[in-house]
Amino acid sequence: MPISSYFAYFTAYRLNVVARFATAIFGGYVLTALSISVMSLLLPVSEVDAVLFSVCLSVLIHCLIFIAVFAIKPLRFLFAGLLLLTTLQWMLLLILKG
């Protein structure tokens, strides 16, 4: 492999890594925050209980997103999926809150 393409490979690889980490941490956080907020409004229990249930599940949700970000191969597909989920939940939240 010529040196230049070797270099390009590593640059691409590192960019990929940084992008996935940033997505997993920040994107995962936002998506989790939205999911549990929606959940807290939808759960058919008292307000206190809805809050408690959703925060208890938050870690699990963030963890699953984290893993998914690294498991889904094409970056484009990953970003599109996350963006779609985030937008949908955000809209749902806006509708629920009126």
């Binding site: 907020s37 959940m39 807290s40 409004l41 307000e47 809805a50 959703s54 925060v55 208890c56 938050s58």
Partner: peptide, 12 residues
């Protein structure tokens, strides 16, 4: 958790 994810409480 309420440091990390205060959002459900803020929503409700």
């Amino acid at each position: 958790i309420f440091t990390l994810f205060p959002y459900p409480a803020q929503t409700v």
